[in-house]
Amino acid sequence: MAEPIIRMESVHKYYALDGVRVHALRGIDLNVMPGEFVAIMGPSGSGKSTLMNIIGCLDVPDSGGYWLSGADVTRMNVDELAGLRNRALGFVFQGFNLLARTSAVENVEVPLLYAGVGRVQRRTRARELLQRVGLGERLNHTPNQLSGGQQQRVALARALVNRPALLLADEPTGNLDSATSVEILDLLTELNQKDGVTVLMITHEPDIATRAQRKLVLRDGTLES
């Protein structure tokens, strides 16, 4: 059997806020195979974003094990985690998280910059991806000159620019109208099916979750099956 891209064993996460301890994740066991499209659902405050941040190596679990493509993430230092985020992972956030006052093409170039890719190659690759998400005509627009849907496409192009194996999307359509949501979802589906990118997507809406092959439901920090 092939190795899972994500393997988690009894992951726990606590938050301490003003002396109150929140047990956000209570023993998560999870396997995701390469090429899967997984939707994560669950009520607000159930720990979806917390889980996604740990999978994305933006945060670390307080206990438990986490292996990304077989590599033990809990033993890595901050710079190794940064390298992993740069090469192996792509992020799409609900709030887009583009750099302000920076053109679309420069936003898409950022991961390449930290990968040490040369100037000319950076520009070529960034253009290529913006064309792919249908923004070939908007290369030099800054985020405030783009619609929400267009901004999310830029974010998607940026997430894909380093050819990651795993794409993480935390409510990618949360700030978009239904027509634009469908466009973004079409892109995600295409990426998953044509390019074999593993996609993990958090969503609140059941009809959006139907796009996925597998649906996980999180409740009070534990996964329902």
Binding site: G56, L58, V110
Partner: peptide
Amino acid sequence: REIGIRMALGARR
């Protein structure tokens, strides 16, 4: 926030 975005995209310390 900009620093956070850069870190998420792979900026080292």
